[in-house]
Design a protein around this nucleic acid. Sequence first.
DNA 1: CAAGAAATATAGCAATGGCTATAAGTCGAG
DNA 2: CTCGACTTATAGCCATTGCTATATTTCTTG
Lengths: 138, 138
Amino acid sequence: MTEIDGQVPERFARAREAQSVALLEDYVEMIGDLISELGEARVADIAERMGVAQPTATKAISRLKREGLATARPYRGVFLTEEGADLADRVRARHRTVVELLVAVGVPEEVAELDAEGIEHHVCDETLAAFEAFLKSR
Amino acid sequence: MTEIDGQVPERFARAREAQSVALLEDYVEMIGDLISELGEARVADIAERMGVAQPTATKAISRLKREGLATARPYRGVFLTEEGADLADRVRARHRTVVELLVAVGVPEEVAELDAEGIEHHVCDETLAAFEAFLKSR
DNA sequence: CAAGAAATATAGCAATGGCTATAAGTCGAG
DNA sequence: CTCGACTTATAGCCATTGCTATATTTCTTG
């Protein structure tokens, strides 16, 4: 290979990895939202909010259980483990920060909300810290 | 469903859609880079830079061909169509802008490069325009 | 120019994340 | 308490994106 390749492959591997975690984060955050809004998270509600068919949500919930982020009693609601609830909190906070930063640099509110949904999963801790510092310093 | 669901599902659908386009964008940009650096884009080089096995790159190139972004002669190099080259240019420009914006708000250069790889695919035209305006106004 | 080496293609497997159709469980109303 | 409606689970399909192993083609070199 040429001498200029550098760590390019790791960059992409990292982006792929982030993407694989993104769905889990979205589901966990959504389940947390539903529990605080409605007192429980039902599969049908989760599926509707995620914009997927109900079996797709069921499958995702299985994965959450497998990863120790949620528990569920069949035909009953879905619940977050402590680890899942912590993740939900972090995800929610990061989402807010990303939206605020986008707005701060001039992105219209509604567009910021839309783009943040995809962007947030690729914002590492260091970048998030930089965002917070930037927001505070204005 | 409750009355507060709003357009949440569309948000996620949009993020999923962006993700499906992301790989194409990465490959097209990389192929463009290789052609300008080395005069040609070989499957082995593409695979190495993307950090995937060679058959994975071959498969991705098939998809690029299917989508009209690239052409390839078996056992020879890969080439971009006009559409593919245009896309590569847009992707490259967007990548630069995202990195610059991250740096402008205080993200360290190397971290900005890493995160931009994932972020850029979720930055819509309107957000990109806001980024450019913000960068110019400083 | 005929190997052998290198590059590329193909075959086939696994996991993920969609879907529809259908089975099975739960719950409320008669 | 039973039956029908609703909810959830399961089965099975497809496409995508990875992988390894192997076949095929091209290139290089003796």
